[in-house]
Simulated assay, not measured.
Amino acid sequence: MEEFRRSTALPHLEGRRSCRDTPCYRPHAHDTFSIGVIDEGTSVLTGPPAGQILLRPGDVVTIPAGQVHACNPHEGRWRYQMIHMDQSWAAALTPGGADSHLFAGISVLRRPDLNRRAGALGEVIFADDSAERIEAAFTEALGALDAAEPEFLVGSSTDPELLDVLRPVLEHLRNDEVNPSLDELARLVGMSRFRLIRSMKRATGLSPLAWRQNVRIVRAEHMLRRGVPIVETAHALGFADQSHFHRVFRAHVAASPGVYRG
């Protein structure tokens, strides 16, 4: 079961309700700030460099933009909600602002009241409430999340200095219409291909080609939300065919492009 809803009043807000019993996500990152709510079952959160964290019913997980992670069901049915939003908007509503622990890394929070508050955020999105009601609900919830002590806090997996060194590689991966070779990418920054792979994983949490796929899928989400047809989206992003696009999209989003587009 997959259900997506976008706010009419605040289009950057997206809610998701999902139920899974098999592994569904590969490591990925969003360009949004995300709040996850575990409603039923257990799941395993993997977020380099932290290893694995077992999530339980009632847990609330906050994930900053750009933080690599994957979450998959553990021993049976797993029902959860996700709320995605513009990170600068979320920071403006948070008492700690951009310096809050919510934006410093993945936080796992274990308090029933926080679960109820976070779950209510999905309700106002699915109800398509007014901007005023939505902002009031998010201001209250983000304030409570900001004030809470995390059960786990996983620091950011990115390395800003190394990202600057790798910027020519990232630009090439972002803009090239075909997969560039590792040797070609390594020459751009004077590294061996093996050092490049290690450096990319340290800087971004992903290998070069995995990072490129993630960028393409984030772009695909934006296009599909705007109503761009699936075939046109796949072609614009350089996928060999629609079948290949479906496979890669599902591995990152755990839903088909058609279900996501709505």
Rank of each mutant, 00 (worst) to 15 (best):
L206K: 04
M85N: 02
D129Q: 00
A141K: 02
G155L: 12
R77P: 14
G227Y: 09
A118P: 07
F103N: 08
R225T: 07
H235P: 09
T32F: 05
I197V: 09
V44I: 15
R16N: 05
P73W: 06
A120M: 05
T46V: 15
R6D: 06
M1V: 15
P180I: 00
V259T: 11
R198H: 12
G51A: 11
P180A: 01
I125Q: 01
E135H: 05
S43L: 12
D241T: 02
L224H: 01
Y25T: 06
A118K: 04
F4T: 04
Q213F: 04
A50D: 12
S34T: 08
H69T: 06
F249Q: 06
H30W: 08
E123K: 05
F239G: 07
E171S: 11
L55G: 08
G143Y: 08
V218A: 13
T158D: 14
R16K: 12
R6K: 14
R219N: 07
L170A: 11
A65F: 03
H84E: 06
E14M: 04
R212Y: 11
L162G: 04
P11K: 08
R111S: 13
P48G: 11
E151R: 13
R216C: 11
S207Y: 13
D146M: 06
H246Y: 09
R17E: 03
L188P: 00
F138P: 02
R17G: 02
H12T: 07
S43G: 13
A137L: 01
A234Q: 04
G190F: 07
G36S: 12
P27N: 11
A9Y: 13
E149M: 10
L13F: 05
V259F: 04
R212E: 08
F245R: 00
H101D: 10
R110Q: 09
D164V: 15
E14W: 04
P64T: 11
T139A: 10
Y25R: 10
E75I: 06
N179R: 13
H84N: 14
D176Y: 03
D128R: 13
D164T: 15
S243E: 14
G36T: 06
K201L: 04
I63R: 01
G205E: 10
R202F: 06
Q52Y: 13
R77M: 15
D159H: 14
G58A: 09
G238C: 08
R133E: 07
A136L: 02
V61H: 01
L55Y: 07
V215R: 14
L163F: 10
A29Q: 11
L209R: 04
W89G: 11
T8W: 13
M82E: 07
L237T: 11
L145S: 09
H172S: 15
R133L: 03
F126W: 09
R16Y: 01
S43H: 08
D59W: 06
A144Q: 08
H222A: 15
T42F: 15
S256F: 03
Q81A: 10
A255Q: 11
A136P: 01
A131R: 05
I230R: 10
G155T: 15
G66F: 07
R110W: 02
P150F: 12
H101I: 12
P57Q: 10
M85F: 11
V259E: 12
R5Q: 06
R195A: 15
A70Y: 01
A251L: 10
S107T: 15
I134N: 00
G119P: 00
R79V: 15
E140D: 14
A127D: 07
V218M: 13
S34R: 07
